[in-house]
Amino acid sequence: MSKEWPLWEVFIRSQHGLAHKHAGSLHAADAEMAIRNARDVYTRRNEGVSIWVVRSSDVVASSPGDREALFDPAQSKVYRHPTFFPMPPEVKNI
């Protein structure tokens, strides 16, 4: 059996002004083919105006085991949200 085409992650920007968002993944022999395949697989209904592809093997991800260390500290910092500060009703535009 021949070598399997590598896996690519596909990111699509749906409209001008929005960020690229992960759409899914696909196989392609090279970057150019990955863009073409992404166009056929993920933008058949005008879902995008721009495509990024990146080799899946190049993605570095946080590990589920680090979830608490990474994300728990933010839970106790509710003062980072504007709703933490009650405003007197007579004060406007704030």
Partner: peptide, 12 residues
């Protein structure tokens, strides 16, 4: 499939 891989390898 083989040709596409060979082409990609050659270009790389």
């Amino acid at each position: 499939r083989e040709a596409a891989v060979a082409h990609a390898d050659k270009r790389a």
